[in-house]
């Protein structure tokens, strides 16, 4: 059954805020599939809250035209957000109870419609994740298909068991996330990078990624000093999904010990490891644990 995430702005600074809260409570009381969301928890990115937001259709109820709740829902990566603006459905001169009733009617209508649509519209994100298909496949790429996953590995790169790659460029190395990683985490909507100048060791975390499925640390695959960050990722985190081995790179580093490359896998070894990982993921999904 499709759960529904209803997010009232519950704003304290506008009269409409109280109405949104009353509406959400009434709707949740009459419909057991409705979960009431919390703007505060989304602001703090409470993991349980994030999961509810990202795994359900979202109906936002905003008390005024600032649309704070819609903004936070979208900033946190929600798709399929439907917004109800209290000011558009009620007259501020009316008594509060009348305004609550009016908004409840609108929300009920949206709920009814969303149930009638078969299986609720799935996130239409496959278009972006499938984009690499459009680009000409690199001669240097190796691919393996495991069920629904087609994973690509770039020859000549070195790979960590944490699913990050290293490519040697003269005295420097470039690092990034592998195609396997980006497929496992799904659509990345937020990237936080470490600052240039920071020295990190293999295994240290430096920055993090957030996707519609999870949040994770960037685990550095080789020791060294960061000399460049991929600034484009701040505005376009999806580059990691679209082009993990090229435009979606993370850092350029000055390595402290290139012999560490021996600790990493080559393309063929990593491809085998990736296939095993994908099989495990598929097993996990079919054995009931997965939800995608």
């Amino acid at each position: 059954m499709v759960k529904l995430y209803v997010l009232p702005c519950a704003g304290y600074d506008r009269p409409g805020g109280a109405i949104t809260r009353a509406v959400a409570e009434r709707i949740a009381a009459e419909d057991e599939e409705v979960t009431i969301g919390s703007v505060a928890s989304l602001s703090a990115e409470r993991p349980g809250e994030m999961r509810s937001l990202l795994s359900s259709p979202v109906i936002v109820i905003d008390g005024c035209s600032m649309n704070c709740a819609r903004k936070i829902a979208e900033t946190r990566g929600a798709r399929n957000v439907q917004t109800v603006d209290v000011t558009q459905h009620t007259d501020p001169q009316d008594p509060e109870e009348k305004r609550v009733e009016a908004v409840i009617k609108v929300v009920r209508e949206i709920l009814r419609e969303s149930r009638e649509r078969p299986a609720s519209p799935k996130r239409e994100t496959t278009a972006t994740t499938a984009a690499p298909e459009a680009g000409a496949p690199e001669e240097n790429d190796l691919s393996i298909r495991v069920d629904k996953f087609t994973m690509t590995v770039r020859r000549g790169y070195h790979y960590s068991d944490n699913d990050f790659w290293v490519s040697v460029e003269g005295d420097l190395v470039r690092v990034g996330a592998t195609d396997v990683l980006q497929q496992m985490v799904s659509d990345i909507y937020y990237v936080e990078l470490e600052e240039v100048g920071k020295t990190v060791e293999l295994g240290d975390d430096a920055g993090r990624l957030e996707s519609t499925k999870t949040a994770m640390e960037i685990i550095i695959p080789i020791s060294g000093t960061i000399v460049e960050c991929n600034e484009r990722l701040v505005d376009s985190p999806e580059l990691i999904n679209e082009s993990p081995y090229d435009e979606g790179w993370l850092y350029v580093m000055r390595p402290t010990d290139l012999t560490e490359l021996e600790l990493l896998k080559n393309a063929e070894e990593y491809l085998e490891y990736a296939a095993a990982k994908a099989r495990k993921e598929l097993e996990r999904q079919t054995s009931g644990g997965g939800d995608s």
Binding site: N162, E201, G203, D204, E217, I219
Partner: peptide, 20 residues
């Protein structure tokens, strides 16, 4: 190994890991 993501999100700061 090397993942500490749960440590960072623990509201009580109750999780620790060995030195990397």
């Amino acid at each position: 190994v090397f993942c500490k993501a749960c440590q960072k999100m623990c509201p009580q700061d109750a999780i620790s890991f060995p030195e990397k």
